[in-house]
Design a binder for these strands. Structure first.
Lengths: 209, 209
DNA sequence: ACCTGAACACCGTTCAAGT
DNA sequence: ACCTGAACACCGTTCAAGT
């Protein structure tokens, strides 16, 4: 039983059942050892979680990217989104902290390089990366939440529709007008289109020419 | 022992010690009852969490907002950020799902109204709200993570610096150049300035005139 | 060095019984 | 209607003991 085997088992559990299903005891059982045996190879659960993340980036082939820097910036962001969309557990673990994977650094480099090619200085480019990442991460978190909710019909709330009463029409006219269509409007949310606008803003205006 | 008392105790625990410290048994103990008594007032832990959220918005006074719609949009977003920054547990609970508070709907209304006053149609304004919320939420999550990490000096990793070796200078030139300054650059990240650019992008260009 | 067994101090929730 | 007690099936982690 080596650390690699522990991490492999942990990743399988995360993939199949998500973060909530991962416990030291569960990993130990599936690895065929006592819970305490794990602690000879990882410091604690947090470290195990960190180890499940590192190396994941290598499993994703690096995409062909457009040459135009603005399009490249958009393409990297969309790639990051599509990749993590298929790995919901990675998003869950990322939210826990600062854990990171060396194999994913090229994404940051590519974003910063593209932004600089569009005229930003290095510091602004690094900050632009952060803002773009927030847009991607937020979308991943709330889309996952929406899917969970859709699967539990008992608790469907159709926020914000469920909170609106007739008395709100005056205070909240736009929400009232959107009422009933909210889900529909949100399903038409296109991250790529939104990111294009965000990138325009971060680069100081739409593409020239 | 009424539902209100249960929620009050739960909120205090969340405020003082965060989501991880909240358990049904702990709430029961502090309320002076057996764990099972709670289940006569709330369906399960998820419902209790939802109840802790609802009503929180009323505790925050609604701010004076500028008249200019673009400035109002920015001011609402910044207000949302500053408010939640002081309530880290609310951010934790929000990440769990779709839980929402009626008292916070004015924020959505105000964002959508401002965006429409700047020329967006209702659907685009709703989508703009979502993108802005992601920028705010992402910043809240990762700033909280950075603070947690800073308090546990044992695990400080200074991502991405810690992952870089000399061999990466060629593959990752910009990250290498930023190396060492990463923390510094991130500390200079100003959400208001970033949001101003994002809003420019979402509204289709910087303010006219 | 690597692993086990027993223990500590917890979890959320169900179920049958009490008033 | 509201609450309790006992139980079920779990947690992460420590500590002393084994090989």
């Amino acid at each position: 039983m080596d650390p690699e085997q522990i991490v492999t088992v942990a990743r399988r559990i995360l993939e199949e059942e998500g973060l909530d299903a991962l416990s030291m005891r569960r990993v130990a059982k599936e690895v065929g050892a006592t819970p305490m045996a794990l602690y000879h190879h990882v410091r604690d659960k947090d470290e195990l979680l960190m180890l499940t993340l590192s190396g994941m980036a290598r499993t994703v082939p690096r995409p062909e990217l457009p040459e135009d820097p603005r399009e490249r910036l958009l393409a990297v962001a969309v790639h990051m989104y599509r990749t993590l969309r298929r790995m919901p557990w990675v998003v869950q673990v990322l939210g826990l902290g600062d854990l990171a994977d060396k194999g994913a650094l090229w994404v940051m480099e590519e974003v910063i390089d593209s932004a600089m090619a569009c005229g930003l200085d290095a510091d602004d480019a690094a900050r632009a990366y952060r803002t773009i990442w927030h847009c991607v991460y937020g979308e991943l978190v709330f889309r996952a939440a929406a899917e969970r909710r859709a699967q539990d019909p008992d608790r469907t709330r159709n926020f914000p529709d469920a909170l609106l009463t007739e008395a709100d029409a005056e205070e909240l006219p736009h929400l009232t007008a959107l009422s009933g269509r909210w889900m529909e409007v949100m399903e038409s949310y296109d991250l790529e289109a939104q990111l294009r606008k965000v990138i325009d803003g971060l680069l100081g205006g739409p593409a020239a020419q």
